[in-house]
Computed example of a mutant assay.
Amino acid sequence: MAYVVVVDLTLAPQHRGDFMPLMLANAAASLAHEPGCRQFDVCVSVQDANSVLLYEVYDSAAAFQTHLESPHFQSFDQNSAAMVTHKSVRSYLLPDTSAAGA
């Protein structure tokens, strides 16, 4: 089973332009440098450009913990914290569907 993290963020409107390049760089670094990171989508709400949803898929909870300890995440987190007015993090398990037809 994969480990899925969904993060809902609300940005301070005056920081949206500064936040998005940092967020996209963090997502790209996660995919490029973390073997346990399978997917990292950054989604912006159609209804509210200050609402950002992250959909991240990792091999395991340990792989997600490695992400949180990575230098690129630590830098992103420190540089973007003041730009976010609300943050909600939820974790899920993604069942392995390859055995469903067996």
Rank of each mutant, 00 (worst) to 15 (best):
M1Y: 12
M1N: 12
A2T: 12
A2G: 03
V5A: 13
V6Y: 05
V6S: 08
D8A: 11
D8R: 12
L11T: 01
A12Y: 05
P13T: 04
P13R: 04
P13S: 07
Q14W: 06
H15L: 00
H15P: 03
H15K: 09
H15I: 01
H15Q: 10
D18P: 02
F19M: 00
P21C: 03
P21L: 06
L22Q: 04
L22F: 04
M23E: 10
L24Y: 10
A25N: 13
A27N: 10
A27V: 09
A29Q: 15
A29F: 09
A29N: 15
L31C: 13
L31P: 05
L31S: 09
H33Q: 15
E34A: 09
P35S: 14
P35A: 15
G36K: 08
G36T: 09
C37D: 06
R38C: 13
Q39V: 10
F40V: 06
V44T: 15
V46W: 12
Q47W: 11
D48T: 10
D48S: 13
D48M: 09
D48V: 11
A49V: 14
A49Y: 04
S51D: 10
V52E: 01
V52S: 00
V52L: 02
L53N: 12
L53W: 11
L54H: 04
Y55C: 08
E56Q: 12
E56L: 07
E56N: 10
Y58Q: 06
Y58I: 03
D59E: 14
A61E: 15
A62H: 13
A63Q: 03
A63T: 07
F64P: 00
Q65F: 07
Q65S: 14
Q65R: 14
Q65C: 07
Q65W: 06
H67M: 06
L68A: 08
L68V: 08
E69A: 15
S70C: 11
S70L: 08
H72N: 06
H72Y: 11
F73G: 00
F73K: 00
F73R: 01
Q74S: 08
Q74V: 10
Q74N: 11
Q74Y: 00
S75F: 07
F76M: 03
F76V: 01
F76C: 01
F76G: 00
D77K: 12
D77E: 08
Q78D: 07
N79C: 04
N79G: 00
N79D: 08
N79M: 05
S80G: 02
S80H: 01
A81W: 01
A82L: 06
A82M: 07
M83Y: 07
V84S: 01
T85F: 01
H86F: 11
H86V: 01
K87I: 05
S88R: 15
S88K: 14
V89F: 05
V89A: 05
V89W: 05
V89I: 13
S91D: 11
Y92H: 15
L94P: 03
L94W: 13
P95H: 09
D96Q: 11
T97I: 14
T97P: 00
S98Y: 04
A99I: 13
A100D: 12
G101K: 10
A102C: 12
